[in-house]
Amino acid sequence: MRRENLLTVVAASLFVFFVLLALFGPWLVPYDPLSTSAGAALSPPDAAHWFGTDALGRDILSRVIVATRLDFGIAVAAVAVSFLIGATLGCLAGFHGGWHDRIISRLADTIMAFPLFVLAMGVVAAMGNTVANIVIATALINLPFYIRVARAEVNVRREAGYVEAARLSGASDTRILVMHLFPNILPPMMVQISLNMGWAILNAAGLSFIGLGVRPPAAEWGIMVADGAQLIVSGEWWVAFFPGLVLMLAVFSFNLLGDGLRDLIDPRRRT
Protein backbone atom coordinates (compact mmCIF):
# COMPACT_ATOMS: atom_id res chain seq x y z
CA MET A 1 0.00 0.00 0.00
CA ARG A 2 2.60 2.51 1.10
CA ARG A 3 4.93 1.38 -1.62
CA GLU A 4 2.27 2.10 -4.24
CA ASN A 5 1.72 5.56 -2.83
CA LEU A 6 5.44 6.16 -3.04
CA LEU A 7 5.46 5.08 -6.67
CA THR A 8 2.59 7.42 -7.42
CA VAL A 9 4.45 10.27 -5.74
CA VAL A 10 7.56 9.51 -7.82
CA ALA A 11 5.43 9.43 -10.96
CA ALA A 12 3.73 12.68 -10.03
CA SER A 13 7.04 14.44 -9.39
CA LEU A 14 8.40 13.18 -12.69
CA PHE A 15 5.25 14.41 -14.36
CA VAL A 16 5.55 17.85 -12.79
CA PHE A 17 9.19 17.94 -13.86
CA PHE A 18 8.21 17.27 -17.45
CA VAL A 19 5.46 19.85 -17.34
CA LEU A 20 7.97 22.43 -16.11
CA LEU A 21 10.33 21.43 -18.91
CA ALA A 22 7.53 21.82 -21.41
CA LEU A 23 6.62 25.25 -20.07
CA PHE A 24 10.04 26.72 -19.44
CA GLY A 25 12.32 24.47 -21.55
CA PRO A 26 13.30 27.11 -24.12
CA TRP A 27 14.67 29.34 -21.35
CA LEU A 28 16.52 26.54 -19.60
CA VAL A 29 18.58 25.16 -22.44
CA PRO A 30 22.33 25.66 -22.41
CA TYR A 31 22.57 26.00 -26.22
CA ASP A 32 20.39 26.97 -29.12
CA PRO A 33 18.73 23.66 -30.01
CA LEU A 34 18.85 24.43 -33.71
CA SER A 35 22.34 25.85 -33.89
CA THR A 36 24.65 23.52 -35.76
CA SER A 37 27.66 25.25 -34.32
CA ALA A 38 26.96 24.44 -30.68
CA GLY A 39 29.82 21.97 -30.69
CA ALA A 40 31.80 19.55 -32.82
CA ALA A 41 29.66 17.02 -34.67
CA LEU A 42 29.04 13.71 -32.93
CA SER A 43 31.00 14.45 -29.82
CA PRO A 44 30.15 12.02 -27.01
CA PRO A 45 28.68 13.25 -23.71
CA ASP A 46 31.11 15.42 -21.77
CA ALA A 47 31.02 18.36 -19.37
CA ALA A 48 30.12 20.87 -22.07
CA HIS A 49 27.51 18.72 -23.77
CA TRP A 50 26.01 16.41 -21.17
CA PHE A 51 24.11 14.39 -23.75
CA GLY A 52 26.71 14.89 -26.51
CA THR A 53 26.07 16.43 -29.91
CA ASP A 54 24.40 15.07 -33.02
CA ALA A 55 25.68 14.69 -36.58
CA LEU A 56 25.18 18.41 -37.20
CA GLY A 57 26.90 19.48 -34.01
CA ARG A 58 23.66 20.44 -32.27
CA ASP A 59 23.51 20.04 -28.50
CA ILE A 60 21.35 16.99 -27.72
CA LEU A 61 20.46 18.04 -24.17
CA SER A 62 19.05 21.33 -25.44
CA ARG A 63 17.13 19.56 -28.15
CA VAL A 64 15.74 16.96 -25.75
CA ILE A 65 14.55 19.71 -23.43
CA VAL A 66 12.82 21.86 -26.02
CA ALA A 67 11.27 18.78 -27.59
CA THR A 68 9.24 18.25 -24.40
CA ARG A 69 6.88 21.03 -25.31
CA LEU A 70 6.20 19.71 -28.79
CA ASP A 71 5.73 16.08 -27.70
CA PHE A 72 3.54 17.01 -24.73
CA GLY A 73 1.68 19.53 -26.82
CA ILE A 74 0.79 16.93 -29.43
CA ALA A 75 -0.29 14.41 -26.79
CA VAL A 76 -2.31 16.88 -24.74
CA ALA A 77 -4.01 18.32 -27.80
CA ALA A 78 -4.81 14.85 -29.16
CA VAL A 79 -6.16 13.58 -25.87
CA ALA A 80 -8.17 16.76 -25.33
CA VAL A 81 -9.75 16.43 -28.75
CA SER A 82 -10.60 12.77 -28.23
CA PHE A 83 -11.90 13.47 -24.77
CA LEU A 84 -14.23 16.23 -25.93
CA ILE A 85 -15.54 14.43 -28.99
CA GLY A 86 -15.52 11.00 -27.34
CA ALA A 87 -17.35 12.20 -24.24
CA THR A 88 -19.98 13.97 -26.32
CA LEU A 89 -20.59 11.03 -28.62
CA GLY A 90 -20.45 8.52 -25.76
CA CYS A 91 -22.93 10.52 -23.71
CA LEU A 92 -25.32 10.78 -26.64
CA ALA A 93 -25.08 7.07 -27.33
CA GLY A 94 -25.48 6.08 -23.69
CA PHE A 95 -28.28 8.54 -23.00
CA HIS A 96 -30.47 8.17 -26.04
CA GLY A 97 -29.73 4.60 -27.04
CA GLY A 98 -31.50 3.61 -30.24
CA TRP A 99 -30.06 4.76 -33.53
CA HIS A 100 -27.73 7.28 -31.85
CA ASP A 101 -26.17 4.40 -30.04
CA ARG A 102 -26.00 2.17 -33.11
CA ILE A 103 -24.29 4.76 -35.28
CA ILE A 104 -21.85 5.92 -32.63
CA SER A 105 -20.97 2.42 -31.52
CA ARG A 106 -20.44 1.40 -35.13
CA LEU A 107 -18.08 4.33 -35.53
CA ALA A 108 -16.09 3.22 -32.49
CA ASP A 109 -16.08 -0.39 -33.69
CA THR A 110 -14.92 0.65 -37.14
CA ILE A 111 -11.95 2.53 -35.73
CA MET A 112 -11.17 -0.41 -33.48
CA ALA A 113 -11.31 -2.74 -36.48
CA PHE A 114 -7.95 -1.27 -37.53
CA PRO A 115 -4.63 -1.91 -35.89
CA LEU A 116 -4.61 1.55 -34.38
CA PHE A 117 -1.11 2.71 -35.18
CA VAL A 118 -1.58 1.56 -38.76
CA LEU A 119 -4.74 3.65 -39.02
CA ALA A 120 -2.94 6.68 -37.61
CA MET A 121 -0.21 6.19 -40.17
CA GLY A 122 -2.74 5.90 -42.98
CA VAL A 123 -4.53 9.04 -41.85
CA VAL A 124 -1.40 11.17 -41.70
CA ALA A 125 -0.18 9.77 -45.00
CA ALA A 126 -3.49 10.65 -46.65
CA MET A 127 -4.14 14.02 -45.06
CA GLY A 128 -0.65 15.36 -45.26
CA ASN A 129 2.47 15.50 -43.28
CA THR A 130 1.77 18.14 -40.64
CA VAL A 131 1.75 18.38 -36.87
CA ALA A 132 -1.97 19.15 -36.92
CA ASN A 133 -2.62 15.91 -38.76
CA ILE A 134 -0.55 13.99 -36.22
CA VAL A 135 -2.84 15.42 -33.56
CA ILE A 136 -5.93 14.47 -35.54
CA ALA A 137 -4.69 10.95 -36.21
CA THR A 138 -3.71 10.39 -32.59
CA ALA A 139 -7.03 11.78 -31.42
CA LEU A 140 -8.87 9.52 -33.84
CA ILE A 141 -7.30 6.31 -32.57
CA ASN A 142 -7.95 7.33 -28.97
CA LEU A 143 -11.57 8.17 -29.67
CA PRO A 144 -13.15 4.72 -29.24
CA PHE A 145 -11.85 4.38 -25.69
CA TYR A 146 -13.51 7.61 -24.61
CA ILE A 147 -16.72 6.81 -26.44
CA ARG A 148 -16.93 3.44 -24.76
CA VAL A 149 -16.19 4.67 -21.26
CA ALA A 150 -18.60 7.59 -21.51
CA ARG A 151 -21.31 5.45 -23.07
CA ALA A 152 -21.06 2.75 -20.41
CA GLU A 153 -20.95 5.22 -17.54
CA VAL A 154 -23.92 7.22 -18.80
CA ASN A 155 -25.84 4.07 -19.54
CA VAL A 156 -25.71 2.82 -15.95
CA ARG A 157 -26.63 6.24 -14.60
CA ARG A 158 -29.42 6.98 -17.03
CA GLU A 159 -32.08 5.78 -14.62
CA ALA A 160 -30.40 7.07 -11.46
CA GLY A 161 -32.50 8.88 -8.87
CA TYR A 162 -30.97 12.30 -9.42
CA VAL A 163 -31.59 12.03 -13.16
CA GLU A 164 -35.23 11.14 -12.58
CA ALA A 165 -35.53 14.01 -10.14
CA ALA A 166 -34.07 16.46 -12.65
CA ARG A 167 -36.38 15.13 -15.34
CA LEU A 168 -39.44 15.53 -13.12
CA SER A 169 -38.44 19.09 -12.36
CA GLY A 170 -38.58 19.75 -16.07
CA ALA A 171 -34.90 19.80 -17.04
CA SER A 172 -34.17 19.22 -20.71
CA ASP A 173 -32.17 16.26 -21.92
CA THR A 174 -29.22 18.48 -22.73
CA ARG A 175 -29.33 20.03 -19.29
CA ILE A 176 -29.49 16.63 -17.61
CA LEU A 177 -26.56 15.42 -19.68
CA VAL A 178 -24.39 18.44 -19.08
CA MET A 179 -25.32 19.32 -15.51
CA HIS A 180 -26.02 15.93 -13.98
CA LEU A 181 -24.47 13.12 -15.96
CA PHE A 182 -21.27 14.67 -17.25
CA PRO A 183 -19.87 15.58 -13.81
CA ASN A 184 -20.49 12.03 -12.66
CA ILE A 185 -18.64 10.37 -15.49
CA LEU A 186 -15.64 12.67 -15.11
CA PRO A 187 -13.67 10.48 -12.66
CA PRO A 188 -13.58 7.40 -14.91
CA MET A 189 -12.85 9.66 -17.88
CA MET A 190 -9.94 11.18 -15.99
CA VAL A 191 -8.54 7.71 -15.43
CA GLN A 192 -8.89 7.03 -19.13
CA ILE A 193 -7.08 10.28 -19.91
CA SER A 194 -4.12 9.52 -17.74
CA LEU A 195 -3.92 5.99 -19.11
CA ASN A 196 -4.11 7.29 -22.68
CA MET A 197 -1.65 10.14 -22.38
CA GLY A 198 1.46 7.96 -22.34
CA TRP A 199 0.16 5.99 -25.25
CA ALA A 200 -0.60 9.18 -27.17
CA ILE A 201 2.99 10.36 -26.74
CA LEU A 202 4.28 6.97 -27.89
CA ASN A 203 2.09 7.11 -30.98
CA ALA A 204 3.08 10.64 -31.90
CA ALA A 205 6.77 9.85 -31.41
CA GLY A 206 6.34 6.65 -33.42
CA LEU A 207 4.80 8.59 -36.28
CA SER A 208 7.66 11.08 -36.30
CA PHE A 209 10.12 8.22 -36.12
CA ILE A 210 8.83 6.87 -39.41
CA GLY A 211 9.05 10.33 -40.93
CA LEU A 212 5.46 11.53 -40.54
CA GLY A 213 4.38 14.76 -38.99
CA VAL A 214 7.06 16.76 -37.32
CA ARG A 215 9.78 17.74 -39.80
CA PRO A 216 13.44 18.36 -39.23
CA PRO A 217 15.09 20.46 -38.03
CA ALA A 218 12.42 20.76 -35.32
CA ALA A 219 13.45 18.98 -32.15
CA GLU A 220 11.15 16.10 -31.34
CA TRP A 221 12.03 12.89 -29.48
CA GLY A 222 10.87 10.48 -32.18
CA ILE A 223 12.78 12.26 -34.93
CA MET A 224 15.86 12.52 -32.77
CA VAL A 225 15.82 8.78 -32.18
CA ALA A 226 15.39 8.30 -35.92
CA ASP A 227 18.37 10.61 -36.51
CA GLY A 228 20.48 8.46 -34.24
CA ALA A 229 19.22 5.15 -35.57
CA GLN A 230 21.91 4.74 -38.21
CA LEU A 231 24.59 5.97 -35.86
CA ILE A 232 23.88 3.54 -33.06
CA VAL A 233 25.24 0.54 -34.93
CA SER A 234 28.46 2.40 -35.53
CA GLY A 235 28.79 3.16 -31.84
CA GLU A 236 27.46 6.73 -31.56
CA TRP A 237 24.84 5.60 -29.12
CA TRP A 238 24.10 8.92 -27.44
CA VAL A 239 22.34 10.52 -30.38
CA ALA A 240 19.41 8.12 -30.14
CA PHE A 241 19.82 7.07 -26.53
CA PHE A 242 18.99 10.26 -24.65
CA PRO A 243 15.88 11.30 -26.54
CA GLY A 244 14.69 7.68 -26.40
CA LEU A 245 15.32 7.45 -22.68
CA VAL A 246 13.53 10.71 -21.94
CA LEU A 247 10.61 9.65 -24.09
CA MET A 248 10.44 6.39 -22.17
CA LEU A 249 10.57 8.18 -18.82
CA ALA A 250 7.81 10.54 -19.85
CA VAL A 251 5.55 7.70 -20.94
CA PHE A 252 6.46 5.74 -17.84
CA SER A 253 5.52 8.59 -15.55
CA PHE A 254 2.16 8.93 -17.27
CA ASN A 255 1.46 5.24 -17.01
CA LEU A 256 2.41 5.07 -13.34
CA LEU A 257 0.31 8.10 -12.64
CA GLY A 258 -2.59 6.60 -14.55
CA ASP A 259 -2.36 3.39 -12.54
CA GLY A 260 -2.20 5.34 -9.30
CA LEU A 261 -5.15 7.46 -10.29
CA ARG A 262 -7.17 4.44 -11.29
CA ASP A 263 -6.50 2.72 -7.97
CA LEU A 264 -7.53 5.90 -6.23
CA ILE A 265 -10.71 6.51 -8.18
CA ASP A 266 -11.76 2.98 -8.92
CA PRO A 267 -10.18 0.48 -6.52
CA ARG A 268 -12.24 -2.37 -7.97
CA ARG A 269 -10.31 -2.28 -11.20
CA ARG A 270 -6.88 -2.49 -9.62
CA THR A 271 -4.89 -5.36 -11.01
Partner: peptide
Protein backbone atom coordinates in the same frame (compact mmCIF):
# COMPACT_ATOMS: atom_id res chain seq x y z
CA UNK B 1 4.20 -0.79 -16.33
CA UNK B 2 7.65 -0.48 -17.87
CA UNK B 3 6.74 -2.72 -20.78
CA UNK B 4 3.94 -0.55 -22.05
CA UNK B 5 6.14 2.52 -21.65
CA UNK B 6 8.77 1.19 -24.04
CA UNK B 7 8.96 2.93 -27.40
CA UNK B 8 9.58 -0.15 -29.53
CA UNK B 9 11.80 1.71 -31.95
CA UNK B 10 13.99 2.76 -29.06
CA UNK B 11 14.24 -0.68 -27.41
CA UNK B 12 15.04 -2.14 -30.81
CA UNK B 13 17.93 0.26 -31.25
Amino acid sequence: TVGVSLPTFFTGL
